[in-house]
Simulated assay, not measured.
Amino acid sequence: MAKQFDALSDVLIRFIETQHMFFVGSAAAEGRVNISPKGMDSLRVLGPNRIVWRNLTGSGNETAGHLAQINRMTLMWCGFEAKPMILRCYGSARTLHPRDADFEPLNALFPASHGARQIYDVALDLVQTSCGYAVPFMDYAGERDVLKKWADDRGADGISTYWETRNQSTIDGAPTHILGRQTD
């Protein structure tokens, strides 16, 4: 039932654009595999083999730490509404931090946020669809504003402090480079 493609078609791009959430998977060579749900207005398809998504400050920073070790990422969407389908996009990603020159032009594609932590510029090398027949129907009830309020309440200085105290390493202790690469 699975079908594989070299790139996203217009039909698959429209499917992505109608989804309210997606999942990100990453892993280092050793340690835990991270699968994280993402929502809000945080993803753009920039071409048949290019997706960018903005990572907002949150409890963990696993993806950045994993990509610093092994550059691979999987994005996944599930058709919870009318069309039963699972879409996976496999590829590699550039991690861009606010200090990087390419960050701001891509960040401008999204609503302003104090919590913008990284942008992942994903180059797709495989796209796969599968049936999704076992995925339940779920109704979309709206966006949560908790993360936005949390970041707004802290402001830029509070977010920087959070990065320093909570986002410098993965749960397995790998560096995320949120504050820059350390030199010997």
Rank of each mutant, 00 (worst) to 15 (best):
A29T: 12
A29G: 09
A29D: 13
G31N: 08
R32C: 07
V33R: 03
I35T: 14
S36R: 05
K38L: 03
K38P: 05
G39S: 15
G39T: 01
M40L: 14
M40P: 01
M40W: 06
M40N: 11
D41K: 11
R44K: 15
R44I: 05
V45N: 03
V45R: 01
V45M: 04
G47A: 04
G47H: 01
P48F: 05
N49Q: 15
R50S: 07
R50P: 07
R50Y: 05
I51E: 00
V52Y: 00
V52G: 05
W53P: 02
N55K: 00
L56M: 10
L56R: 08
T57I: 10
T57M: 11
G58H: 05
S59E: 10
N61S: 05
E62I: 01
T63E: 00
A64E: 00
A64N: 00
G65R: 02
H66I: 01
H66S: 03
L67A: 08
L67E: 05
Q69H: 10
Q69E: 15
N71A: 02
N71W: 00
R72T: 09
L75T: 06
M76T: 13
W77P: 02
W77Q: 02
F80T: 11
F80I: 12
E81C: 02
K83Q: 12
K83R: 14
M85E: 09
I86N: 01
I86R: 04
L87E: 01
R88M: 13
R88P: 12
R88L: 12
R88C: 12
G91T: 07
G91N: 08
S92V: 02
A93R: 05
T95E: 04
L96M: 10
L96W: 03
L96K: 09
L96I: 04
H97F: 15
H97P: 00
P98V: 09
P98I: 04
R99F: 13
D100P: 10
A101D: 15
D102Y: 04
F103G: 05
F103N: 09
E104P: 07
P105N: 11
P105E: 11
L106W: 04
L106C: 13
N107R: 15
N107W: 03
N107L: 07
N107Y: 08
L109W: 10
L109N: 09
F110V: 09
P111E: 11
A112F: 10
S113R: 12
H114M: 11
Q118W: 00
Q118P: 00
I119C: 05
D121V: 09
D121G: 11
D121Y: 05
L124V: 08
L124S: 06
L126S: 09
V127N: 06
V127Q: 04
Q128R: 13
T129F: 02
S130A: 12
C131N: 13
G132F: 01
G132E: 02
Y133G: 06
Y133E: 03
Y133T: 12
V135R: 01
P136F: 04
F137P: 00
F137G: 06
M138R: 15
Y140S: 12
Y140L: 12
A141I: 14
E143A: 13
D145H: 12
V146I: 11
L147H: 08
A151S: 14
A151Y: 01
D152M: 11
D153L: 09
R154N: 03
G155F: 07
A156M: 09
A156K: 13
G158D: 01
G158R: 03
I159S: 07
S160G: 14
S160M: 11
T161P: 00
T161C: 08
Y162G: 06
T165H: 14
T165Q: 15
